[in-house]
Design a protein around this nucleic acid. Sequence first.
DNA 1: CGGCATCCGTGACGATACTG
DNA 2: CAGTATCGTCACGGATGCCG
Lengths: 223, 223
Amino acid sequence: MPRRSYDQYCAIARTLDTVGDRWSLLIVRELLAGPLRYTDLFTDLPGISTDVLASRLRDLERDGVVSRRRLPPPGTGSAYELTERGGALLPVLGALAVWGGPSLGASAPTDAVRAHWFALPLLARLAPLAGDERGVMDVTLPDGTFHLRLGDAPPGTPVCGRGPSPTGSDASLTLDTATCLSLADGTLTATDALTAGTLTVTGEGPLAESLRKHATTATAVRN
Amino acid sequence: MPRRSYDQYCAIARTLDTVGDRWSLLIVRELLAGPLRYTDLFTDLPGISTDVLASRLRDLERDGVVSRRRLPPPGTGSAYELTERGGALLPVLGALAVWGGPSLGASAPTDAVRAHWFALPLLARLAPLAGDERGVMDVTLPDGTFHLRLGDAPPGTPVCGRGPSPTGSDASLTLDTATCLSLADGTLTATDALTAGTLTVTGEGPLAESLRKHATTATAVRN
DNA sequence: CGGCATCCGTGACGATACTG
DNA sequence: CAGTATCGTCACGGATGCCG
């Protein structure tokens, strides 16, 4: 909560009091992909300044959105991670990602790019296709790889992460940049991308089967 | 979009470029309840300053979130209303309202209060109970009345509004402040409130029936 | 009177430098 | 590595003025 509150007895205004400050929700976006140290957070938030990052982390920790944890002996320093309440911001970021998809357009030359920034938009679009299946999915784009966790998971488990899943994956997706953009802005459904072959799913488990099933049933219905 | 962009090729960052400025989403919150003139907007946004309101309205209009319309002869001046794209921010505000419910707590003495600020939290909680029924519902709290539109509606139709529905309603809800708060923070489901009788539904149409049905089936299942 | 524009003080932000 | 210190700039909040 910033020094300046809206002072309105309104759930929306209260949320904005807590995470409405500049950079706050982008810090949450980064931490949804797992705990990070200060410096790593700094490098994945191009444009933030060191004092603002430190100030936001302090505010978010005080408000119970973020917690700070000493790293075990192999590592040095400490890491920041989302609390359960912080992780509950996922629907907020999902809604923001869905709304912003159509206005994403082409990347400006000045834009920073990180592959895992597509994780939340894709998660919002792919979640309906997973059915009740749970599992981890590696997603490979030309610019890099990240992983998504579909279905319910124990509280505190990151819903996505940078790079391939360190614990192995139940399915692997491969898609090109254009397909990823069309999925993100809603002009292409995952089902259509599967049918067209610009999105491929590999893997043997029930999660991979469930994803593929949607393409085949959609094709069958269409014929 | 503020003068300072995040310059990140990320759907979330792009959304925040457009509506992440202070007061922007609260302006959208107000306009979701229907078109308003500058002065009315000003009085329902306690704490905003005149120049900031004017500046935000200019930015939102330029970005296609808000449009300005001359009022027909009976009225004077002009009114601001959401574009279709602006109305698509409803899921964002719904998610913000759901997250902020638990932290709403008691109202501080300095808090401004408006009855219709509970419209979006209640809409997010009641929408699942309406099933596929569509219609308008008047909601009466001790502090005032507002109305909600359930189900799909033509683009541009406000999803809620101040006071009772001017076009008549398909159902009427009455609840006290404590029940409203419990619904907003998620500690009480609408089904339980119906069963307990602290939330009453009157009306004869299918929407009212659908709402009441949820309470009786839940009771039946529980026995 | 509605709809802003202007002025001004304060504080937030951004960039860089520096320290434990 | 993980911030704090410093400083210039700009956005915000409050008040007032202008103009149809």
